[in-house]
């Protein structure tokens, strides 16, 4: 039972981080119709910068309990890369989606080397901080409080995004633009501004997700590409462009990953991608997606 509990919580923790990245991917796809392969690079950027930022802050005498706020700030700061990248992507908004995909692929290549240049090729990690908030122990069942906080933060982010999209005027404008760009433009909506805002928000979700994960795992050059593969599975399972889909997909992928890591590590990506293929074939629009025209 406790082994099961550990797997469950491990899976949910992974799902929480994955949800942030996938939500960024969904937001950008939902509104801009671009599949942003670089979302994983934002995640890596957030992770590396989070390590640097927290290390410096702790050295400068910040108390240990500020870890979580510090990481959130680090993630938020890194979202500054969003606007310039959106500016570059703007050149291909009117082109075929294969060009848009390729341009984000170019970003993946560039960011990989930018990170290598700034932080080196070896994995780095933030040591001995995961337990600053203590841990909950019940027999074999051990969970760091930090993990629970991150799960709470992700749930909070999901709720905020939901409220923002459903209840605020800007959220409505955003959904209207996603629904019909031409119509929104005709009605005087500043589509250009919305695209910039959406892309930056998508970036923010990725960088924050990356920053939050570093107390539990090392940051490495591979993490960008690895998280894309999982986030991608999430959005396909959940349905491209759907926030509810991102939530459900993250949970499913997170739990499968946690379960297979324990029982049969060979099956990790295999199991995830078998589900992806099954979903694409049976319901190409995903569990929560709208059917493709």
């Amino acid at each position: 039972m406790s082994a099961f509990g550990n797997i469950l919580l491990g899976g949910i923790f992974h799902a929480a981080v994955l949800f942030l990245v996938a939500a960024g991917l969904q937001l950008v796809f939902g509104v801009q119709k671009i599949v942003n392969l670089a979302c994983g690079s934002f995640y890596a950027l957030g992770a590396y910068f989070g390590i640097t930022f927290v290390t410096l802050a702790l050295k400068a005498g910040m108390p240990q309990w500020t870890l979580l706020p510090l990481l959130l700030v680090a993630g938020a700061v890194m979202a500054v890369v969003g606007p310039p990248i959106e500016r570059i992507l703007r050149t291909v908004y009117d082109r075929d989606e294969s060009f848009q995909l390729l341009l984000t692929f170019a970003m993946v290549l560039m960011f990989q080397d930018i990170i290598r240049f700034l932080w080196g090729a070896n994995p780095t990690s933030l040591d001995n901080v995961q337990l600053v908030y203590g841990k909950i122990v019940a027999g074999d069942f051990i969970v760091p409080v930090y993990n629970l906080l991150v799960i709470a933060a992700a749930i909070g982010a999901a709720a905020l995004i939901g409220l923002f999209l459903q209840r605020t005027n800007y959220g409505r404008l955003l959904r209207a633009t996603a629904e019909n760009r031409t119509m929104a433009e005709a009605l005087g909506v500043n589509v250009r501004g919305i695209y910039a805002a959406v892309f930056t928000l998508g970036t923010l979700l990725g960088t924050v997700g990356g920053a939050l994960v570093v107390p539990t795992a090392a940051a490495s050059l591979d993490m960008a590409v690895e998280v894309v593969i999982e986030a991608f599975a999430v959005v396909v399972i959940g349905g491209l462009g759907s926030m509810a889909g991102a939530l459900a997909g993250s949970l499913l992928v997170g739990l499968i990953r946690a379960g297979s890591l324990v029982f049969y590590p060979e099956f990790e990506i295999l199991a995830i991608y078998l589900i992806v293929i099954g979903v694409l074939l049976l319901k190409p629009s995903g569990l929560f997606g709208k059917p493709a025209a």
Binding site: I88, T91, V92, F99, L102, L103, F105, A106, M107, V108, L109, M110, F111, Q112, D113, I114, R116, F117
Partner: peptide, 15 residues
């Protein structure tokens, strides 16, 4: 850092 240069070239070609 050849990947960076390749990425930049790809971006320029696409644009």
């Amino acid at each position: 850092y050849w990947r960076f240069v390749l990425g930049a070239i790809l971006a320029l070609v696409v644009i």
